[in-house]
Amino acid sequence: MLKVLMGCFYLLVLVVFAFVMVKFISQRMKSTFKPRKSNVGYAAEINPKTAAPQLLNQILLMLPGENNEVLSRLSVLAEDGNQAEIDVLLICPTGIYLFNSINESGYVTGGEKDRQWYVLNEDGNKKAFKNPLDENRYNMQALLRRYPEIKEEWVFDYVVFSNRCGISDVHLETTSPVLNRKMLFETLRGQIAEQSVILTPERIQYLYNRLKLYTAGESTASLSLQRKADKPFYKGGAAKIHEVKVPDLTRFSPEDQCLKNKLIAFAKEQSQREQTTAAEVLDRETIEKLVNMKPESRIELETVQGMDKKRCENYGDLIISIIKQHDDETSNKRQ
């Protein structure tokens, strides 16, 4: 009798053990990746909707460099009429870096040519989202179209997932960086160290001033200007950076209309000397862009759409002189 009872007891133990093992294995098959708990503590002032870009900002601000600038949540009008949303953008001496920040939790699958990628959550639910590499290409083209002064070879893009995502099953055919947030600093620092310097401090500041006009208003004040105030980059003090205003080709103040007339007169006079048309010297659209942007240096002049190399070399100094003289006259009248 005792042997029968012992046998039943052992049989019951084996059944329980088998049930537990089956349950465990089925759970593992349901979700092959269990995201670890994030040890990132969100500050009370961080909005959950914008937490990922803000965390990226903190990482990018730690990169070495005196003239780096970081912008968040840019909205640029694309060719199809929709808004291209850029989460975070870094401008530094080696180029312009776009970041697509994805704050999900789970196991990510997808390929470069797939229209959609998927994230498998811990509870087994699968969530689809648009291919982030396609989004980066769309955003990059919108940026290049809106700012023709930016060259395509200056721009690099990253897809950054939260540390709670597994990305080992993401299939890439190119070297487009797709990584976790914890890997970003070292990866980006290594890339920047290998790249050649292509942007001067003045051009970085100019691009920052232009691009910040299209942010959601949450970008920090210019870091390079703060650094220059503490430790001047140039001898004789911090450089004066010309702030540009939003281009508006539909309205002109009396002062701007006066400058426009001066540039039109200059184009006519110059065309008579060269026996060509005024539009060959400066066309109407270029004149309006000059009036709106009022470049104060050759670097700023080169970024004005319509001011090609030939125009900058032939008329650049004269145009800058006309704009400076006009600004001085306007300032004196106001005094």
Rank of each mutant, 00 (worst) to 15 (best):
P295T: 04
K268D: 03
A267Q: 04
E274M: 07
C312T: 14
E274R: 08
V291M: 06
M293S: 15
A265F: 01
Q270K: 12
I319P: 04
Y315F: 12
G306L: 00
L318D: 15
T276W: 01
V291A: 07
C312W: 04
R311Y: 03
D283R: 00
K309R: 15
R311Q: 11
A279F: 12
Q270L: 01
C312R: 13
N292K: 11
E288A: 15
A265C: 09
V291R: 06
F266P: 00
V291L: 05
K294S: 01
M293D: 10
I287F: 11
R284W: 12
E269G: 03
A279Q: 14
A267F: 03
E269K: 04
A278L: 01
G306V: 01
I287V: 07
T303G: 05
E302T: 07
T277K: 12
R273S: 08
K294W: 03
L318Y: 13
D308F: 02
I319S: 04
V291N: 07
E280L: 09
E296Y: 10
T303H: 05
S297A: 03
A267T: 05
E300L: 05
G306S: 06
N314I: 05
E280V: 10
E274L: 10
V304I: 12
Q272C: 07
T277N: 06
K309E: 13
I299C: 09
N314Y: 08
R311H: 04
E285W: 14
L318I: 15
E285F: 14
D308H: 06
K294C: 01
M307Q: 09
R311S: 02
Q305N: 15
L290N: 11
S297T: 10
E285M: 13
K268V: 00
A278F: 00
P295W: 02
E288W: 13
N314F: 11
T276H: 05
K289M: 13
E288N: 14
T303C: 11
K289G: 09
Q270M: 04
T303R: 13
G316Q: 03
E280H: 09
K289I: 08
E313K: 11
S271A: 06
A279E: 14
L301F: 01
T303E: 11
D317K: 12
E280A: 14
G306C: 07
A267C: 00
P295H: 01
D317S: 14
A267L: 01
T276C: 10
V304F: 04
V304H: 06
L282N: 02
I299A: 09
N314T: 10
K268Y: 02
F266A: 03
D317I: 10
K294M: 01
I287P: 07
R298F: 12
A265E: 07
A265Q: 13
S297V: 06
K268P: 01
M293C: 09
K268L: 00
Q272S: 13
A267V: 02
E269I: 00
I319A: 08
R298E: 14
D317R: 10
K309M: 12
Q275T: 10
R298I: 12
A265K: 14
K268W: 02
F266N: 03
T286W: 06
D308Q: 09
A265N: 11
Q275Y: 06
L318C: 15
M307R: 08
T276M: 01
T303K: 12
Q270S: 08
